[in-house]
Simulated assay, not measured.
Amino acid sequence: MTGTLLKVENLGKSFGGVKAVDGISFELPPGELLALIGPNGAGKSTTFNMVNGQLKADQGSITLDGQELVGRKPREIWRMGVGRTFQIAETFASLTVVENVQMALLSHDRKLFSTWRRAADHKRDEALALLDQVGMKSQADRPCSVLAYGDVKRVELAIAMANSPKLLLMDEPTAGMAPKERNSLMALTKELVIQRGMAVLFTEHSMDVVFAYADRMIVLARGRLIAQGKPLEIRDHPKVQEVYFGTGKTFEKKAAAVGEAA
């Protein structure tokens, strides 16, 4: 796929006298997984929250299919086709798996507060289809409270897909997961990207996940974008080695398998 879905230009945000994000620019086309990485305090979460509308940018522009996102509320951005998952999975533990997805479908149809119909009567088939895509249809009628954490993350992904997003934002998607669960979730995400032609912007601390699944990477340090490119280009980038990884020993170890496979 060609063209640009998400375009960020000269984006900036300050808190007091501290520039959390300092004039960064990048683009994201459909059908791509873009990893946003950097050390603690680099500005990743601030950037993420400005794209999602939780924070308003002090300067710059964020456009989705040419439509400006700066100044819009998160709910409006969600209705424009931006889904999101969180570092700590957010589901209703007291509801069943399928009811969690149905609640998201209700919200997307603007019926959550305008109807007295039970969620169980609303688009169950559509909810089950979403659960089938993430491998959770067989557990549809179980309460979320009894699920393993990896399964909860899959349910959250199904919820995030309820608005048929063009862009999916994933904040530390594999946090708290075992290696096998991490790979399973990201392989599923990659498959959905290919099937749906959507784009994914994700933050992640696990370099094995980043190198295995990101099509490109952008690297922030102290609020500034210091590098962007394909994973193997980032691995060998001198500024990245110096600023983000110190000596680079840990980084090179994590990336070794990718280099050998290339």
Rank of each mutant, 00 (worst) to 15 (best):
M1F: 11
L6H: 09
V8T: 08
V18I: 12
K19H: 03
V21E: 00
I24Q: 08
F26C: 01
E27S: 12
P29D: 07
G38M: 14
N40C: 07
G41M: 04
G41N: 00
G41F: 09
G43N: 11
G43H: 14
T46E: 15
V51E: 09
V51M: 10
N52M: 13
Q54V: 09
L55N: 07
D58E: 11
G60M: 13
G60R: 15
T63R: 15
D65R: 07
D65T: 07
G71D: 07
G71L: 11
K73T: 14
P74G: 11
R79C: 03
R79F: 12
R79I: 02
M80K: 05
V82N: 00
G83I: 01
T85M: 00
F86T: 03
E90N: 10
A93S: 15
A93V: 15
S94V: 14
L95P: 09
L95E: 08
T96P: 06
T96G: 02
V97P: 02
V98T: 06
V101E: 01
Q102M: 10
M103V: 09
L106C: 13
S107C: 14
R110S: 05
K111G: 01
K111W: 10
W116C: 14
W116S: 15
W116Y: 15
W116I: 15
A120V: 04
R124T: 05
D125Y: 10
D125V: 06
L130Y: 08
L130F: 08
L130I: 13
L131P: 00
D132W: 10
D132V: 10
Q133W: 02
G135Q: 11
G135K: 09
M136R: 04
M136V: 10
A140N: 02
D141Y: 08
D141I: 08
S145K: 01
A148G: 05
Y149C: 06
K153Y: 06
K153G: 00
V155K: 06
A160L: 12
A162P: 04
A162Q: 04
P173E: 07
T174W: 05
A175E: 11
G176T: 03
M177R: 03
A178V: 08
K180V: 12
E181G: 03
V193K: 05
V193M: 12
R196A: 01
G197V: 00
M198K: 13
V200D: 03
L201Y: 10
F202Y: 14
V209R: 03
A214G: 08
I218P: 06
I218A: 10
V219Y: 08
A221S: 10
R224P: 05
I226K: 03
Q228E: 09
Q228G: 04
K230R: 14
K230W: 14
R235M: 15
D236S: 12
Q241I: 15
T247N: 12
G248S: 11
K254F: 15
A255F: 09
A262W: 15
A262D: 12
